[in-house]
C-alpha cells in the first residue's frame, strides 16, 4: 500500500518537475495577486496591516484553486487515469497520492513565499510565523476539498470556472480561521491563536480521511 503511494507520488513529482513551469505559474499568480492589492486599496501602513491576513488567504484560495484543474487533467487526457483506476489498488489511496504531489507542488511553495508577503504588508514577525503555520495546515485542506471538485468537473468544457463555483464556497471555513489566526496574532497575541489551529488541524484530519474517498467516488462517476 505504502509502495503504491510512493510510486504515484514520485511519478507525479518527477513529471511536474521535468516541466517546471507548472509549479512556478501558480506561485507567481499568488505573488501577483497579493502585490496588486496595495495598488488598488492604497499603500497606507495601517490599511495594509488590516487587509493583509485576508488578502493572503484569498490569494491562496485562488492560487490553489487555479492549479486544481491540472490535478487529474493530464492523466485523464492520455488515458493513464483510467488505467490506474482499473487496477485493483485502493482508489482513495491513489487519489491521496496525487493530491499529496499536487500540494507539494502548489501549496508548499505558498508557505515558503509567505515571509515575502508579510514584508509587503508590514506584518510583525509573530504574525508572519503564524501565517506560515496556517498556510502549512490550511492549504492541504484546500487541495483535498478541491480534488473532489476537480474530479467532478473532469474533462468538461469551461471546467475551470465551474470548479471555482463549486469549490470556493466549501473553502470558507479555512479562509475564516486561517485569516482569523493571523489577525489575532497581529493584533492580540500569539497565544490566543491556539483555538484557530485546533480547528484548522481538525479540518485537516477530517478531510484527510473523507476527501480522498469522495474524490475517488467522483472520479468513478466521471469516468464511467
Amino acid at each position: 500500500m505504502l509502495r503504491l503511494f510512493w510510486c504515484i507520488l514520485s511519478r507525479d513529482l518527477t513529471l511536474a518537475l521535468r516541466r517546471g513551469t507548472d509549479v512556478l505559474t501558480s506561485l507567481f499568480f499568488f505573488v501577483i495577486v497579493v502585490s496588486l492589492f496595495p495598488l488598488g486599496v492604497g499603500t497606507e501602513r495601517e490599511v495594509l496591516q488590516t487587509l493583509g491576513p485576508g488578502v493572503v488567504w484569498v490569494a491562496a484560495l485562488l492560487a490553489s484553486m487555479l492549479a486544481l484543474e491540472r490535478l487529474f487533467a493530464a492523466d485523464h487526457v492520455d488515458g493513464t487515469l483510467e488505467q490506474m483506476l482499473l487496477t485493483d489498488q485502493p482508489r482513495a489511496l491513489l487519489v491521496l497520492a496525487k493530491i499529496t504531489a499536487h500540494w507539494l507542488l502548489t501549496g508548499l511553495p505558498l508557505v515558503l513565499i509567505a515571509p515575502l508577503v508579510g514584508m509587503q504588508y508590514h506584518l510583525t514577525g509573530a504574525a508572519v510565523g503564524v501565517m506560515m503555520l496556517t498556510l502549512l495546515i490550511g492549504t492541504p485542506v484546500l487541495s483535498l476539498l478541491g480534488a473532489i471538485g476537480a474530479a467532478l468537473t473532469l474533462g468538461l468544457r469551461g471546467g475551470g470556472i465551474l470548479l471555482a463555483l463549486l469549490i470556493l464556497p466549501l473553502y470558507i471555513p479555512v479562509l475564516v480561521y486561517g485569516a482569523g489566526a493571523i489577525d489575532v496574532a497581529a493584533t492580540v497575541s500569539v497565544a490566543d491563536t491556539r483555538p484557530y489551529f485546533e480547528l484548522l488541524g481538525a479540518f485537516l484530519l477530517v478531510t484527510l480521511v473523507f476527501a480522498p474517498v469522495a474524490a475517488a467516488a467522483a472520479l468513478k462517476i466521471s469516468l464511467e
Binding site: 473532489i148 467532478l152 464556497p169 466549501l170 469522495a214 467516488a217 466521471s222
Partner: peptide, 13 residues
C-alpha cells in the same frame, strides 16, 4: 450522479 455527490458533500460542509 456528479451533481448528487456534490450536493451530499455540500450538505456535510
Amino acid at each position: 450522479r456528479a451533481a448528487a455527490l456534490l450536493a451530499i458533500v455540500g450538505l456535510i460542509m
